[in-house]
């Protein structure tokens, strides 16, 4: 037993004495530009791994990394554990990446880690969902929570003729970004569409099958329901299938945030009316382009526009690089997109 403890202690000592206080390649690239000859490293974080939305962002990101000749790391939590995002970012700080681009699951939580990265001279951009403004240099803004909330609520009201009952299917009650969207959906409803009534909110655990069951139940529990609003991507096809099986396609509208490939079938046969999203591949591309420009010092605070390779110029408002308005995929245009 004691021999064993001694061995453990010995190992601990070896590990500690072996620690190089700051290795030759451990310091992050100083602000103002990477040393010539060294490839820049961009670390891109999705909210979770194994999520088709972020996989399509990654497609664009990889393209940009190839165009610019930088190294790209793509990693994030596999489980809905926001603290794991902080852990990975702190690992990236000691790994010595040059710039971090993060999609933030929990705004306040992740900001501590991102600030730490900035203190070490690492450039930080956020994409998809923002951190606190003082925790990053730029936000690649495909749509603020307010834009998303407004777009969803406006579309819902338009389809329902400004009055009627609707229900929301979300991923989980605790998903921070969806909580924020709901807040803006509700604010918009109160301000502009008092005739609309939100009757129920159900979580689907980010699973299509569960969303289908929840939608089936909602349709029968609330017979006057006119619309299902799905704010997590697996829920859109799930709800559409449920509406179809209930024989209520066209009578109960389905809208939501999702990818064209997952929804093409339902949009074309009319079960789903509108899918709202942005060009995710472009989002990934623009994020990496701006991250690299930032690290090289080509993109500075106060800039009013940014030229992103093959995609052309983007407007910058304050510290938000604007990808453009959320896009509406409908029967007429969905075939032009493949992601």
């Amino acid at each position: 037993m004691f021999r064993f403890l001694a061995l453990t202690l010995g190992l601990g000592l070896v590990m500690l004495t072996g620690c190089n206080k700051s290795g030759p390649d451990s310091a992050a690239a100083p602000a103002g530009g990477a040393p010539a000859g060294k490839r820049l490293t961009v670390a891109l974080m999705p909210k979770s791994k194994g999520n088709a939305y972020f996989v399509s962002c990654k497609q664009g990101a990889e393209q940009a990394a190839k165009d610019l000749g930088v190294e790209l790391i793509f990693d994030g939590p596999v489980n809905p554990d926001p603290a794991k995002q902080n852990e990975i970012i702190e690992n990236w700080i000691t790994l010595g990446v040059d710039v971090i681009a993060a999609a933030c699951e929990n705004k306040d939580g992740i900001s501590t880690a991102l600030k730490k990265a900035r203190d070490k001279g690492i450039k930080v951009v956020t994409y998809d969902s923002d951190a606190n403004p003082d925790a990053r240099d730029f936000f690649v803004n495909q749509a603020t929570p307010e834009d998303i909330g407004n777009a969803l609520m406006d579309e819902a009201a338009r389809l329902c003729g400004n009055e009627g009952e609707f229900a929301i299917i979300t991923a989980s009650l605790t998903a921070q970004n969806m909580i924020e969207w709901q807040k803006f959906i509700e604010a918009r409803r109160v301000a502009k569409y008092p005739g609309m009534k939100m009757v129920a909110l159900r979580p689907c655990d980010d699973l299509k099958d569960k969303a289908q069951s929840e939608a089936t139940t909602l349709l029968s529990a609330y017979p006057n329901l006119k619309l299902l609003m799905n704010i997590c991507s697996p829920a859109v096809p799930g709800a559409a299938e449920a509406v179809k099986q209930a024989g209520k396609a066209g009578k109960v509208k389905v809208i939501g945030l999702g990818l064209p490939n997952e929804n093409r079938r339902y949009v074309k046969d009319g079960a789903t009316d509108t899918v709202i999203l942005w060009k995710t591949v472009d989002l990934g591309y623009l994020t990496v382009q701006s991250a690299v420009a930032l690290a090289k010092g080509e993109l500075k605070a106060g800039a009013t526009s940014f030229h992103s390779g093959k995609l052309g110029d983007f407007k910058i408002a304050g510290d938000n690089i604007l990808l453009g308005e959320p896009f509406k995929f409908t029967k007429d245009n969905i075939d032009q997109f493949d992601f």
Partner: peptide, 15 residues
């Protein structure tokens, strides 16, 4: 389960 919809969600079966 597969035959109940025209798509497979790879997250299926969680929990």
């Amino acid at each position: 389960n597969l035959v109940q919809s025209p798509q497979v969600d790879p997250g299926t079966g969680r929990m």
